[in-house]
């Protein structure tokens, strides 16, 4: 059960990591600057970095959950 929950959470973290990368990359694209302006670029960058950080923290927690339960079983 723990491993299954960790897997689901890991998928969620991976999807959020992809989103974070897209947000950060597109913060520096000329089209975003032309269409959305500087505040939107800053929001994309800040939002992307924060989502990326929390996705990494969640992925780490998933790893800990799986390794901890494996250690208990072992």
């Amino acid at each position: 059960m723990k491993a299954f929950a960790a897997l689901l959470a890991l998928v969620w973290a991976a999807l959020n990591a992809v989103l974070a990368i897209l947000m950060v990359v597109n913060a520096f694209v000329a089209k975003t600057a032309q269409h959305e302006g500087l505040p939107a670029q800053a929001a994309l960058l800040l939002g992307g970095l924060t989502i990326g950080l929390f996705a990494a923290l969640l992925a780490w927690e998933c790893y800990r959950l799986v390794t901890k339960s494996a250690a208990v079983r072992g």
């Binding site: 723990k2 929950a5 939002g47 924060t50 989502i51 923290l57 927690e61």
Partner: peptide
């Protein structure tokens, strides 16, 4: 929406650490 994405990630992190 972005804040909720962050909150969901943090909520999952916190609760998974406390099974």
């Amino acid at each position: 929406m972005v804040l909720i994405l962050i909150k969901v990630l943090d909520h999952l992190r916190y609760t998974l650490a406390r099974w």
